[in-house]
């Protein structure tokens, strides 16, 4: 198995304008993701998950360490990575089609070709016939499908997803999880998925990486040895529950000291 993404001892300090001090968001994060692997990161809120994803995307520069994508160091955003952002990141003044072609426009793909490619992915995420809708005319689930299509159309080497389903209701979320697995299986992409929902992480992933409380570090990496293709029934399986218990305990160990400190 070839390694697609490698994070080597990543550290990040934010300048804290309030206290004029520094906020250490990430400390010594090392992990690697294989080609075609689906890896999730879970961890307490504020532990630096979004920060880590932004560093992989190249939006933020790490203050220590290095990201390698296919062996090449990452320093700025590029078409080899695409992010599915949290909710409401669609450009509201563009239609579904306009949003999906946005990234292609940015890298100078001809408009006719961009539309053609976009149509393919709009179909893939099940939004054919909605090309000319604006985002306010779409449900939350549909908006995230557009978000997914906007990233997939770039044909990136790795797909970075930052809690893409967090704002959806429970039923829509499960539906989207199942569909994401189908799309992932069909496309063969490498995925780095961030979530704070343990069941979501287990259901989707080959491996779940648990981050510690801030400053974020890799606390543990849990291989999820459940057969694929997976269906939602899997969430009733005792093995699934065993994974849930284990990861839940790992996160609790991180939450507890914080709760004590706060209480």
């Amino acid at each position: 198995m070839t390694i697609k993404l490698e994070a080597h001892r990543i550290g990040l300090e934010y300048g804290d304008p309030e206290s004029d001090g520094r906020l250490v968001a990430l400390n010594d994060v090392s992990l690697s993701i294989h080609e075609n692997e689906f890896v999730s990161i879970v961890g307490p809120s504020g532990c630096g998950k979004t920060t880590f994803l932004s560093i992989v995307d190249g939006l933020i520069r790490a203050t220590a360490g290095q990201i390698l994508l296919g062996g090449t160091p990452v320093s700025e955003p590029g078409p080899d990575r695409a992010v599915v952002f949290q909710d409401s990141s669609l450009l509201p003044w563009r239609t579904v089609l306009g949003n999906v072609v946005f990234g292609l426009e940015c890298i100078g793909v001809r408009p006719s070709e961009a539309r053609e490619r976009a149509a393919h992915y709009i179909e893939m995420v099940g939004l054919r016939g909605f090309e000319n809708r604006y985002s306010y005319q779409l449900s939350g689930g549909m908006q995230q499908r557009v978000n997914l299509a906007r990233a997939l159309v770039m044909d990136p080497q790795i797909l970075l997803m930052d809690e893409p389903f967090a704002a959806l209701d429970a039923q829509t979320r499960e539906l989207m999880q199942e569909e994401l697995l189908n799309i992932w299986q069909a496309s063969g992409k490498t995925v780095l998925f961030i979530t704070h929902q343990i069941d979501e992480a287990i259901f989707l992933s080959d491996r779940v990486i648990v981050f510690s409380a801030r400053p974020g570090r890799v606390k543990e990496s849990v291989d999820i040895e459940l057969d694929r293709p997976r269906s939602l029934k899997l969430k009733r399986d005792p093995r699934f529950h065993a994974y849930e218990d284990r990861i839940w305990s790992l996160i609790q160990e991180e939450e507890k000291p914080r709760a004590k400190a706060a209480g």
């Binding site: 955003p77 695409a82 450009l91 946005f102 426009e105 940015c106």
Partner: peptide, 23 residues
Amino acid sequence: RFIRVARSFSASEWKIMTAIILP
């Protein structure tokens, strides 16, 4: 947040101006 999206897609400054800021 829209500028962040644009940067993530490697948008040029010109593209950010015309496709994000202006609308």
